[in-house]
Nucleic acid binder design. Sequence first.
DNA 1: AAGCGCTCGTGACGGCAATCACAACTGAAA
DNA 2: TTTCAGTTGTGATTGCCGTCACGAGCGCTT
Lengths: 238, 238
Amino acid sequence: MRAPYGLNILDNCLTCPVREEHIFCNLSVHAGQRLNEIKSTAVYPKGAMLFIEGQQPRGVFVLCTGKTKLSTSSREGKTIITKISEGGDVLGLNAVISSHPYEVTAEMMEPGQANFIPRESLLQFLKDHGEVALRVAEQLSRNYYTAYEEIRTLGLTTSPSEKFAKLLLSWSSKNTQNDGSLQVKMTLTHEEIAEIIGTTRETVSRLFSDFKKRQLLQLKGSTLLIRNRPALEKIIQS
Amino acid sequence: MRAPYGLNILDNCLTCPVREEHIFCNLSVHAGQRLNEIKSTAVYPKGAMLFIEGQQPRGVFVLCTGKTKLSTSSREGKTIITKISEGGDVLGLNAVISSHPYEVTAEMMEPGQANFIPRESLLQFLKDHGEVALRVAEQLSRNYYTAYEEIRTLGLTTSPSEKFAKLLLSWSSKNTQNDGSLQVKMTLTHEEIAEIIGTTRETVSRLFSDFKKRQLLQLKGSTLLIRNRPALEKIIQS
DNA sequence: AAGCGCTCGTGACGGCAATCACAACTGAAA
DNA sequence: TTTCAGTTGTGATTGCCGTCACGAGCGCTT
């Protein structure tokens, strides 16, 4: 007998995008059952904040559907987006494990569903199931690598055009297509792109114009077409 | 009967700067003994590379004495220093846990001693001792926070002067002194400081001149004296 | 003392991107 | 339709900082 759709965390391996490395999949039967007892599922509207930077950690969210924007800001209001999370990602894990405040704000960019696991329950669960703790450690070190990639982008790349090219390439690498040109669905505003690469909205606008003129990309509605990948790669190491 | 000085990893709690959070301290007797069997100690000269960015992970280094410079560079030769590690720090943990290449280069800035734990032995050790795996996870999430602090510095701070002020404050917060003014021993070259805050050597030189003129700091030989902390804090949020 | 490598200070210049400003456009709501 | 909020394009201006250049200081070796 199966739990209803979306209520059994083990089912996430089926309903969420499949990820071999998903820390809460392929658990022992006993651990899986325990996990199902402590988690709860909810649907969030667009704009919902799963958690906010600086808050004491309440628990982790296992994103099932929808996209989430992770961002951090300074007191003066400047904001950078550090990651766009999608189905299968685990959010807030670092804060819960280290008992530090959430280091980012997580905001739903579109309606979506997520499983919530309260902090205390998760910590107790990890103490009881040492083998899962190692999985968590692996997940954390993956997060760490992502953060380092961000550091490299922000620290080693000087000009906005380089960062922009890098971002475009990171998008295209996710959606590998048949022929040389790749298309990606663009859901971000120029403002948001600016917050990702750490520049201003106007500069992003000009970059789009410039890259279009240079035949590097093309826009059909909200679909982004990357026409000249090698040229973009060349821009990065200029 | 005790092992000779420096050869017993448990002694690091005594010989290394005391850190409650040290992941390899306060272990069970059994785990501690096992750890002593798999670790080895060595002394490294100034300039020695413990590991290099991109290498397959061989193991972790528990730094006992000496300072280590962690850096990452782009193909074009630009380098950023992400952290200066000191006694008690565990280096290379993320790479070993995730089986990814080292994400940074670790170079000894002065002669020092470190314990080495080979990759395979450590992973097996963690499988056998689930309680230590959780400690490792905690350490990883601390590393993650440090990385995020770096992201905030690089991404939210625009001008070199802000970053410089932030760096000075991070130094002074470590060495809290009696009166308002704090002194820190400066061992870094302007070039290295530039690589930390992501600017050029010349700009760092000018920043020192400027800050001296504005009575924010003072230099006595290699000793840095911070004269006006509040003013520095004001620069950050300008 | 001379030579060398490394570090540090500072001037001059130029380019690029942040800032401000405004207009055009979109799409949804009234 | 009109209205309005949010997004996008683009021009003009300005200032900051990266780059290049050169000289001075300092410690070490020969």
